[in-house]
Design a protein around this nucleic acid. Structure first.
Lengths: 343, 343
DNA sequence: CTAGCTTCCCGAACCGGTTCGACACGGCAA
DNA sequence: TTGCCGTGTCGAACCGGTTCGGGAAGCTAG
C-alpha cells in the first residue's frame, strides 16, 4: 500500500501520483480523479518517514519540557495542550522531549537525528545553554521566557518584573507596609530560572519605590513547603500583612499556614501573585492575581515558530505579555497588625 | 554529514559504517576505531527519518490525549510526564496527538502515515471506537482504562468500582447515612467515560449494601461548578453529611461551597474520593482519598506497550490498580445533622 | 507542412539509512 | 599445491516518497 501500488492500480507512474496528491504540478482532471478514487478505495496515506526523508522536513515540532523533578504545575499542562492544538492547525505534530538530567541525550535525539523541524523551549533560564546551543546552530526555535540577553532571539514570555511590581503596588495601595515574597524553590533560583529572578527583581524594585519593609523567601513546589514558608514568614516578622507569590503549587499550603496561624484572608492578611486563573479560582478566598495566560503563550509560541520555519532568515520576533491583575477576594486594606502572641 | 561522508573519511564503505555502528555484523577492531573516531569528530548521528524508512520502525510512541475542552487535571500532567520519562528509558520518543473534534484526522496522521510504532490511549470510554479501531487493525496499543469488554486487549487502569466502594464504606463506617456522589461532567458520563461510569456503579452498589440514602450529581470540571454542586446537594437534602467525588478540578469549589453553607469539614461534613495525592494535599483540610497513582499508570502503560512491540503476538496483559485510601483530614464521624435553617 | 508552444505524463535520480549476497584474503589441513 | 573455512569488507538493492529533465501528443501560427 505504497505510492507504487497506487500508481499501478491507477495505470500511471509514481511521479504522477505524487503530483496529483501534492498539486505541485498540473495533472489532468481525468487522471486526478482516477488516482483519487484509488487512493480513497485503499485509504492510502503517504508514509511520514519517507516524505520526511525526501523533502527534509518532518512536520514535527519539539517541545522541550522540564524534568519531572520540578513538580509540574497546572499552568504547564494548559500550555502543552495549547501548543499541541495550535500546532495541529498548521499541520504539525508535537514531540515531547524531557530536558532531564542528561539533557544532551534528548537534544541529540531532537536535533542530531533531525526528528523535528523546530523546537519550543520551556522554563528558560537567564543563562541558558540550551538556548545558546540552539542559537549557535541557528536551529529554528522559540523560547518561553527571555534570557538575560534576549536580543536577536525568538521568544514569548511574561513580563514578570512588571507583573510582580503590579502586585506590590496593589498591596501598597491597600496600605500594606510589611510584605513578603514567596518565590520558586531555591534550587531553581540558583539555576537561574527567569521567572524566579525577574519576579524577585520586580518585587525588590517596587518595594523600594514604595518604601516597604520586605523579606523574600524561596519555597518548595508543594503544599507542605508553602505551609512551612508561612510559618517562617510570621516567625521572622509577625507584623507582616501580605505576600506576593509566583509559586502556584505552594498556594494551597500558604493558605493553610495562614489559617493555622489564625490570620484570616483577606481581613488580617492579603495574598496575591502570578498564578493561572484556574488555580486562582480554586482556592478560597479566590486569589487576586495576575493570571498567567498559559494557553495564549502556547499559541503565540507556535505562531512564531511556524513563521520562523516558513520564512528562514526573517528578523527575530517576540511577544512580551503583561496580563492585568484580576481582582478577586484575597486582598484587602491593611488593618491594625495583630499584637504578637494574640491568636 | 551523512553516512556516506563518514564512510569516505574513514576510507570504508557505507555498509561497513552501518555495521560498525549497529554491531549487527562483526567489524575488525581497527576499522571500528577509525570509524568511531570520525563519527566523534564530526558529531555524526544517523537521521531518524532515513532509519525509520529503512527498518520500518519510528522509535516513537503516540500519546492520544483528550481535547482541551475537558479541562486538564493535575493527574493527567503527572501521567504525561511519567510516560515521557519511561519511554525515554526504552529509547522511544513520545508524540502527542489530540483526539479532538476530528479525531479521525489525527488518527490518520498517527497510523495512516505511520508516525508511531504504538499508541497509548488516554481517557478511555466503555464503548470506545478509537480502541475498537486500533484492535481491528491489530495496531499495538495500550489503553488507560478498560472498555466494557476489556478481554483480549492491553490496558492499565484503576479499579474505580473498588475505589469508590472503599470511599463509601469508609463514610458508612464513620456513621454517615446520607451521602452524595459528585461525578465528572454529565457530558462525559453520557459519552461513556469509564471512570465516571464505573465510579458511579461502585457508589451505587456500596451504598445499597450499606443501606445508605444517596443522591448522585454530575459536576463541571471547575471550581465554580463544584461550589454550585454543593449548593444543590444541600438544597436537595440538607441532612447530607458526606460526599464522594471523582472530580479533582471541582474539589476546591466543593470545599468553598461547604464553607459558605457553614458546614465545617470534617466536623459537620466529610469529603472523600479519588484524587491525585498532590491535589489532595493542597486543599485544607487535606483530603482523605484514594490517591490516583498517575505516574505508576504512565510507567506501566509504557512497559506494556514496549513489551507488546518487542513480542508481537504475545498474549494480552493488563494491570488493574487499587491504591488504598490515604487517611488525611477531611473525614470524621457523622455528628447530629444540623437542623434545617440553622447556619 | 512544419516550427513552436502547451499540456500532461514518464523515467530516473535522489534523500540517508539498512541489509543481503558475494567476494577477497589469510590460515590451516590434506 | 590444492581445497576449505572463517573473517572482514564491499556493492547493490531496497524502504517510499519527491523532484527534475525530457519527451510525446495535440494545437495553433506561419
Amino acid at each position: 500500500m505504497n505510492i507504487g501500488e497506487i500508481a499501478r492500480r491507477a495505470g500511471v507512474s509514481r511521479s504522477t501520483v505524487s503530483y496529483a496528491l501534492s498539486g505541485k504540478r498540473p495533472v489532468s482532471d481525468d487522471t486526478r480523479r482516477k488516482i483519487q478514487q484509488v487512493v480513497d478505495e485503499l485509504g492510502y496515506r503517504p508514509s511520514a518517514s519517507a516524505r520526511a526523508l525526501a523533502n527534509g522536513r518532518t512536520s514535527t515540532l519539539g517541545l522541550v519540557f522540564p524534568p519531572a523533578g520540578n513538580h509540574y504545575t497546572g499552568m504547564q499542562l494548559d500550555f502543552i495542550g495549547s501548543v499541541v492544538e495550535a500546532a495541529a492547525v498548521y499541520d504539525y505534530d508535537v514531540l515531547l522531549s524531557p530536558s532531564g538530567v542528561d539533557s544532551d541525550r534528548s537534544f541529540q535525539r531532537l536535533l542530531g537525528e533531525r526528528r523535528v523541524d523546530g523546537a519550543i523551549l520551556m522554563e528558560i533560564r537567564l543563562e541558558d545553554d540550551r538556548a545558546d546551543h540552539l542559537a549557535a546552530l541557528d536551529f529554528p526555535s522559540v523560547a518561553i521566557g527571555r534570557t538575560a540577553r534576549p536580543e536577536g532571539s525568538w521568544w514569548v514570555g511574561l513580563d514578570h518584573i512588571a507583573l510582580v511590581e503590579a502586585c506590590v503596588h496593589h498591596l501598597a495601595d491597600l496600605g500594606h507596609r510589611r510584605i513578603a515574597f514567596v518565590n520558586r524553590p531555591e534550587q531553581l533560583l540558583r539555576a537561574g530560572y527567569e521567572s524566579a529572578h525577574r519576579g524577585l527583581d520586580g518585587f525588590t524594585k517596587a518595594a523600594a519605590e514604595r518604601g516597604l519593609t520586605v523579606r523574600t523567601y524561596c519555597c518548595g513546589d508543594d503544599a507542605a513547603s508553602g505551609q512551612a514558608c508561612v510559618e517562617r514568614i510570621l516567625h521572622d516578622d509577625p507584623a507582616t500583612t501580605g505576600l506576593v507569590t509566583l509559586n502556584e503549587a505552594a498556594l494551597g499550603g500558604l493558605y493553610r499556614g495562614l489559617a493555622q496561624a489564625g490570620r484570616h484572608v483577606p481581613r488580617d492578611f492579603s495574598v496575591t501573585g502570578v498564578v493561572a486563573a484556574r488555580w486562582a479560582e480554586t482556592v478560597t478566598p479566590q486569589l487576586t492575581a495576575a493570571d498567567v495566560p498559559a494557553a495564549d503563550l502556547g499559541r503565540l509560541a507556535v505562531d512564531l515558530l511556524v513563521e520562523r520555519l516558513d520564512h528562514p532568515g526573517a528578523p527575530p520576533r517576540h511577544h512580551l505579555l503583561t496580563p492585568p491583575i484580576s481582582l478577586r477576594a484575597s486582598t484587602g486594606p491593611a488593618g491594625v497588625p495583630p499584637t504578637v502572641g494574640t491568636p
